[in-house]
Amino acid sequence: MDSLKSEVAKLVEQTCKVPPIGPNDYSKLLKAMGIDSLDAASLFLAVMERYAVEVPDEQIEHLNSIDSIAAYIEARRT
């Protein structure tokens, strides 16, 4: 799970162009990292493409940190 969180953090850095994210930031809200709604759309597309998981609109509000995104992926990926 830790390596998945690290992967997601890298994905966030790349797609949202934010400064390097450390483990202490994994529980931080994406919004607090300066990630707006457009960045989030780009991030969730990257998550869907990389991990082959669906991310329905109704899930988006719950996927608001690296912790929650990694947990969502872990529960669904094959």
């Binding site: 709604s37 457009l38 780009s42 597309l45 609109d57 988006i60």
Partner: peptide, 12 residues
Amino acid sequence: MNGRAVFNFSAT
């Protein structure tokens, strides 16, 4: 407009 759906469609 569902901005996320349009973005996903356009970007892919």
